[in-house]
Structure formats: structure tokens, C-alpha cells
Design a protein around this nucleic acid. Sequence first.
DNA 1: TACCAGCTGCACTGCACGGTGTAGTGTCGC
DNA 2: GCGACACTACACCGTGCAGTGCAGCTGGTA
Lengths: 216, 216
Amino acid sequence: MGETGTDKALREGSSVKRAAIIAAARDLFVHQGVDRVSMDAVAAQAGVSKRTVYDYFGDKRRLFLAILADASDSLNASARDALDKHLPETAEIATVPQLEEALTAVAVELGTTIVGSADYAAAFALVAQQRLQTPATEDDVVTAPVENALAERFARWAAAGLLDAVDPQLATAHFGALTLLLAYNAQPNPASADPARVRQIMIDGVHAFMRAYGAR
Amino acid sequence: MGETGTDKALREGSSVKRAAIIAAARDLFVHQGVDRVSMDAVAAQAGVSKRTVYDYFGDKRRLFLAILADASDSLNASARDALDKHLPETAEIATVPQLEEALTAVAVELGTTIVGSADYAAAFALVAQQRLQTPATEDDVVTAPVENALAERFARWAAAGLLDAVDPQLATAHFGALTLLLAYNAQPNPASADPARVRQIMIDGVHAFMRAYGAR
DNA sequence: TACCAGCTGCACTGCACGGTGTAGTGTCGC
DNA sequence: GCGACACTACACCGTGCAGTGCAGCTGGTA
């Protein structure tokens, strides 16, 4: 399941044009909905002929899937960056306050990069749009890797006596709900978030999480 | 802002037909997306002629808004019911465990009726679909009344020393995130939720909430 | 009986969009 | 000069859909 077969006769083309088309389509799709955006509009926004769009991506559905894959990739990449940056394997976290500080740093960074950035918020919006439609939408944005990485760390801290979490998976879900989920949902419309507001939600969310799960 | 003006020349008609059209349109819209559902399909599903749909609602947009208003009303009604049932003004809640029990009852009921019921889940799905589209979407599903009612109760319990909540609004937001938001988001697709799963999420969510906000 | 409103069924218009085919232009390597 | 290629501009087809107009059926009412 690694490669989604580029079935036939798709042109490789330059990566800059490809990126331009994806960016244009993403922005238009997010703000107007996939169905209301014509391929002509995508081509115009990308500064490319409509024919080129079809030569590159085949049809509208495959263009959409390409957007999802692209967003999913960069989302996971930046999430992993944030984790490695603020919660490295070598982190010396020995007290609950240290843990809260580190988690807050992670949450704020994730919040500003994910919720605050149109690129990633777009992915969620698009999935939310298509989720209900044609049931054959198994092509989702994969959040699992990040969640698993977090759950693994939670389990380690629980073992170390820093967290009072019987079920690390559940703790991870609650962490996400109190931070990213809440922040994303609190925005009137994604891709235009108020950074300060997001930041405050993150801080409050981590604080509540630590009150619930921090060892006493 | 009370009445959205039924501009002109709309027929009142029988409430059963009206309800049938709304139900049919809601289901189709939720499962296929507003743009992909034709008015012919709505009429057929409702067992009504297309002409009648137009005579009743004017156009597709107003039909959509009627669905939102309808869902918003019944959602708030059943939410208020759940609150009055499990957290009446006359409730004798004096201990933290009693509070957790009552909150769990409320959350489970809200979860099964809202997340578990297609009617209300549909509203959120539709709003999610339209939220990004044409920015002039001020016609939202109003959750504010319920949230305020909850926040008010939280404030009272905080004053009574049962909750350790400096900011009742924030506590309400966290309560919602840990329960409804998480449950709604954990469903692969709304309107087909697993009741047992929803129930468990609610129980766990309230438990975590009480660990974070319950007085020690 | 005549009238009238609610409703159906259907034909019809106008339009927008997905997708294709193709002629023509610029560019690179030989 | 020549072929191969990437790309554009544009015309074009088929289709699906929002919305309208209308003829006709039905049941209730005076």
C-alpha cells in the first residue's frame, strides 16, 4: 500500500508547477468546497493551463488525493519535528512541572504550526468535507504516527511515576482533545486562526491535562 | 435576529410534508454532501414533487438553512432536557463523587442523543461542510445556550467548593472537549456511531475532567 | 354545481462544469 | 534543420442540475 498507482499516462512535470497546482487547488477547495471549485479556476489560480492540470493529475479526484497526501506528509513531518525538538529521547524530565513545561512547548508549537497554518488546517477541513460523502474514502490524513509517538512517551512517564495514566492511549486522546481538537474547533473558520488565542488554548489545555493526569 | 424572514410567496403547507422534506434533505445532504444532492433526489426521497419542495422552501439554500434551524432547535431542546433531568436546579449534590455521577449521566445522555443520533450529528456535519465555503455563513448551529447553562452550573459548584474552576467558561470548554468533541471526532463517520464506544468515551472524559477540576 | 387551493408530473431553459482533442508556440539536444 | 517534449489557448461535447411554467387531478367548501 505504499504507492498509490499513478495509473497511466500522467506526466511527471516540474515539481514547482506541481506544487503550485496543489497549493492553488488546496486553497480554493478549502475556502469554497471541492464541488464548487472548477478545474478552470484551479488552473487559473495556479497560473497554468487546464490541460496541464489534467496531464499532471488525471482528474479531479486524483488531484484531491494528491492534496491530502501532500498535507499528510508535511503534517507528520512537522509534528515529528516538534516532538523531537521539545521532547527528545534524551530529555531530562524528572519532575511534573518540567513535564508540564515541555508539554506546553510541544502543544504551542503544534498549535501554531498545525492549527495556525492554512496548509495543515486545510487537510482537516477537506477530510471533514469529504468524510461523509461517498463512503469509499479510506484515504485519510494519517494522524496515527504522531499519536502513537506521544502515547509511547506518556507510557514511559507513567512508568517513571510522573503521570498517573493507566491507559496511555486514552491519555493521548484526552491530551489531543484538550489542546488541538479544542483549538481547531474554537476557530470560526480554520486557516485564519488567532495565534494568541490558539496559544492560550494550548496553555490552558495542557494545564488541565496535567491536573488530571499529573502524579500527585 | 429572531426570525429569518421567509421572504415571499412561500407556501405554508402541512407540517408533516415539511418535516418529511427536511428529513429527506438532511439525510441526503449529510451522506453525499449538499452539492452532490439534486433537488429531484430530495423530492423523491421525501415522497413529494419537486415543485412542492420549491413551493415550500424557495430554493436550495433556504432549504439548507431550514435544516440547520430545525436541527439547532431540537438539539438545544434535548440538551436542555438532559440538563434538567440529571442536573435539576433542585439537585442535592454535595460531594465530588455525586457530582461526577451526575455529570456522567448528563454526558452519556448527551452523547447518545447527540452524537448517536443522525439528526443532530447531521447538523454538525453540514456546518462543517459549509463552514469554509462562502464566508457569509453566519447561520450556525447555536450551541451557546447549552454551554452557558453548563457554565453557570459549574460556577455554582465552584462557589460551593466542589469544583476547582477559576474560569467556569474554560471548564465548560474542557468538559465539552473531553466528552462530546472527542466522541464526535472519534467516529469514523457521524450518524453511524457505536453507542457503547460513545458511552465509554463519555465516562472516561468525565472522569478525566473530574480529576482535573474536582476539588481535592 | 362551481370554485379554489394543494399538489403532482413533466417538459423545458439556461448554465456551469468535467473532461478531451488539437493546433500552435517555445525550447532543448542532435 | 529536425524531432521530441512541455505547455498553452481554445473550441468542443455531454451531462447534470437549479429553477420555472403549466396542465391536470383531487378534495373540501359554499
